[in-house]
C-alpha cells in the first residue's frame, strides 16, 4: 500500500503551503531525485560488490541529502525573489509557476543523466522482512511507522520549539512576524529543508517497498499526494495524514472492485466531490490557500 508514502509527501506539500502559502510543485521531482540518486550511488558509484553491508544505508543517506539540497536550491531561486507585490487574485500563481519550471528542469536533468528506463535497486528488501504467514509485509508496516514518526517529530517541533513558534508566526503574517523579530530570511529555508527531508524519507520508503526507481516515479506519487493534501485540507498536518491514508484506501478499494484503470477516476472524483461539498477540504482551515477576503 502506498498510503504511508502519500502521507509523507502530502505533509511535505502541506508544510510549504501552510506556512508560506506556496504550492510547491517541485516536491514530486525532489521525491524522485532521492530514489534515483540512491540507486545511482548503490549501483554505480559505490557498488555493493564486497559484502554490501553499509552501501545501501549510505546510498539512502546520500539520496536524502540530495533531496534537501535540491529543495534549498528551489528556495533560493523561487521563493526568495517572489515577494508578493499586488493583492490580486492570481498572485499566488507566481511561485507556483516557478516551481513548475523547476519540476521540468529537475525531471529532464535526471532523464539526461540516467535515461528514462526504470532501474532495479540492487538490494532487495521484501524477502528479508517476511515473517511466517503474515500477509501484510513488514516493509509496509515499517513505512507507516517511520512516516508517522517523522511527521509526529515535525509537529512536535512546530508546537514546542522556538523555531516552530517562529514558523507559525510566519504562517499567520510574514510582515508582522519580521516586525516582531523573526528572521524570515533565515527561517524560510528551514521550511524547505523540512519538506526536502520528508520527500527524501518518502523516496527511501518507496525504494524499500518497490525496489524500483524511475524518472517518472514522482509524478504518480506527487499528484496523489496533492490529492491527499487537498482532501485533508491545506495546511493541516493531521489532515494530510488522514488524506494520505484515505487516498491509499481508495486506491486499494477501486483496484479490488473495478480494476486498475479506475484508480484515477476514484481518487480525483472523490477529491472533486469533497471540494464541491466543502471547499476547504475535510479538515482545512479556511484561511489558507485563498486570496484575500
Amino acid at each position: 500500500m502506498l498510503g504511508s508514502i502519500y502521507v509523507t509527501v502530502a505533509v511535505a506539500f502541506t508544510l510549504t503551503i501552510g506556512i508560506l502559502n506556496f504550492l510547491n510543485f517541485t516536491i514530486p521531482a525532489i521525491f524522485m531525485i532521492t530514489g534515483v540518486i540512491a540507486w545511482a550511488v548503490a549501483a554505480h558509484w559505490l557498488p555493493l560488490g564486497v559484502d554490501g553491508g553499509l552501501a545501501w544505508p549510505l546510498a539512502f543517506i546520500i539520496g536524502i541529502v540530495a533531496a534537501v539540497l535540491a529543495s534549498l536550491i528551489v528556495e533560493r531561486f523561487t521563493f526568495r525573489y517572489l515577494r508578493i507585490r499586488h493583492g490580486d487574485a492570481t498572485e499566488h500563481a507566481i511561485p507556483l509557476v516557478s516551481s513548475l519550471g523547476f519540476l521540468i528542469i529537475f525531471e529532464n536533468l535526471v532523464l539526461i543523466a540516467f535515461g528514462s528506463e526504470a532501474q532495479a535497486f540492487p538490494e532487495k528488501f521484501k524477502s528479508d522482512f517476511y515473517i511466517g504467514e503474515i500477509i501484510i509485509g513488514l516493509p509496509q508496516l515499517m513505512s507507516l511507522a517511520i512516516s508517522l514518526l517523522v511527521v509526529a517529530f515535525l509537529s512536535w517541533i512546530l508546537k514546542t520549539t522556538n523555531t516552530g513558534r517562529a514558523l507559525r508566526a510566519i504562517a499567520e503574517n510574514p510582515d508582522t512576524a519580521s516586525l516582531l523579530g523573526v528572521d524570515v530570511r533565515r527561517i524560510v529555508p528551514l521550511v524547505f529543508l523540512f519538506s526536502g527531508l520528508l520527500c527524501g524519507v518518502a523516496g527511501v520508503l518507496f525504494v524499500v517497498n518497490y525496489s524500483d526507481v524511475s524518472p517518472y516515479m514522482g509524478e504518480e506519487v506527487g499528484t496523489k499526494a496533492i490529492a491527499a493534501m487537498v482532501l485533508g485540507g491545506l495546511g493541516s498536518i493531521w489532515g494530510a495524514i488522514a488524506g494520505g491514508l484515505l487516498v491509499g484506501l481508495l486506491e486499494a478499494l477501486s483496484i479490488h472492485f473495478f480494476g486498475a484503470d479506475t484508480v484515477d477516476v476514484a481518487v480525483w472524483g472523490t477529491l472533486l466531490i469533497v471540494l464541491i461539498l466543502k471547499p476547504s477540504g475535510l479538515f482545512g482551515a479556511s484561511r489558507i490557500g485563498k486570496g484575500k477576503l
Binding site: I17, N21, L23, A89, H92, A93, L96, I226, A227, V230, L234, W268, G269, L271, L272, L275, I276, P279, S280, G281, G289, K290, G291
Partner: peptide, 14 residues
Amino acid sequence: RTRGVYMVLATFAF
C-alpha cells in the same frame, strides 16, 4: 465556490 489554490486543484482534478 473554491478559491486560490483550491480552485487550481479542483480544475486539475476535473
